[in-house]
Each structure stands twice: as C-alpha cells, then as structure tokens.
Amino acid sequence: MSAAGPGEAAAVTAMEAAGLAYTVTRHGRVSSLEEAAAARGVEPAAIIKTIVVRRAEEDYLLVLVPGDRTISWPRLRALLGVSRLSMPDAATAREVTGYERGTITPFGALRAWPVVADERVSGTVSIGAGAHGVAATVDGAALVAALDARVADVTDPA
C-alpha cells in the first residue's frame, strides 16, 4: 500500500483535529456508486457525496448528499434564502477546496466552507478522504457534529 498523498493526509489530519473516530478504506478508483459501496462495505445510500455549490462570487458551501440521492435545488435555495445557486466547474471546485472532483471532502479543504448535510446522513456512512479510492467510514451523527453542519431535507431520490 502506498503512502498517503497530500489530499488524503490533509483530510486525515483534519478528521483527527476534529476528534472524529474514523476508519480509512483504500480501494483504488471505481467507476460507479455501486462499486464504491461494495469496496467500502456499505450500502449505496451510505456513501456520502460532498458537492460544492456556489452561492455568490467567492461564496461557496459544501452539501453532503447520500449516494442514492441528488440535491433538491428548490429546497436548498429556500433553506439558504437565495434565488440562485450553481455548481462550479471542476477547475473552480478544485481552486476553492484544494481537491479535484471525485476526491472532495469537507475535511482539510483550503477553506472551512459552510456545510449543509441532508437529514438522511445518519448511521454508519462513508465519505471521501481526499484522494481517489480513499474513504473514511464514520458515524453520520458524529460527522455532522464535527462539521457543525446545518441539517435539513435538501435531497430527492436519484
């Protein structure tokens, strides 16, 4: 097994600093949600995607979305009290988080952007850990608490 790269090291350091109990799983690149879930030993719904959302110029937030769900844009806009949200392109997402798409995690991002967690983030979940094919298995409630995430119903079935 190779040594942790800079993204994984940043994520792990941040999880430790937050006092979050976690288990790292390294499984290499996968091509689907189902492959990732099988490799991590969890159900697809327990895979937590970290989505970068642009609220305004230089104003982003991270949304934690269960793997089998998608963002409900009307509900997220209503929660945030804004009329428009967008997803930045891959280069901008990397610029504002320090992670490339597919590896984005709230832990160790370049800036501590606000986090909104869908209310279904609970039980044992698996979140990206800063590198392709690397994840952290954590308790969903502890994850939400460690990130001081705002919890709301902000997703729809995929």
Rank of each mutant, 00 (worst) to 15 (best):
A91S: 07
R101Y: 11
V53W: 00
I104M: 05
E95D: 01
L85S: 03
A38W: 00
R75Q: 13
R101A: 15
R94K: 12
V52C: 05
D68S: 05
V30I: 09
L80G: 02
Y60Q: 06
E57L: 02
Y60T: 15
M87T: 15
I51M: 02
S32Y: 10
A78E: 15
A109Y: 11
A93M: 06
K49D: 12
A78C: 07
T92H: 05
E58L: 08
S32H: 06
A78F: 11
A90C: 12
I48P: 09
R84G: 10
I47H: 10
V65H: 06
A46Q: 14
V116K: 04
S31C: 00
R94N: 08
S72F: 04
L61P: 11
A36E: 15
L64S: 05
V52H: 03
L79S: 00
L33F: 05
E43S: 07
A46M: 14
A117P: 04
L110K: 11
E58N: 13
S31D: 02
V42Y: 05
G41K: 01
L76W: 10
R75E: 14
P44I: 14
G67L: 01
V63F: 07
V63E: 06
L64N: 05
A56E: 12
A112F: 09
I71H: 05
R94T: 12
M87N: 08
I51V: 08
T92R: 07
E43G: 03
P44E: 09
T103I: 09
S32N: 09
L61S: 08
A56R: 09
A39K: 00
L110T: 12
L79G: 00
I47G: 11
G41F: 02
D68I: 07
I51E: 01
L76I: 10
A109V: 11
K49C: 09
V30Q: 10
A37F: 12
E95N: 00
V96S: 08
A45M: 08
K49N: 11
S32R: 04
I47M: 13
T103P: 06
Y60C: 06
P66V: 13
I51D: 02
S32D: 08
I104G: 04
A36H: 13
L110V: 14
A38C: 01
R111H: 14
W113G: 03
V65N: 05
W113R: 00
A109Q: 14
V116I: 12
D68Y: 03
R55T: 15
L61A: 06
V115C: 00
R55S: 13
G67H: 03
E43Q: 13
R111I: 14
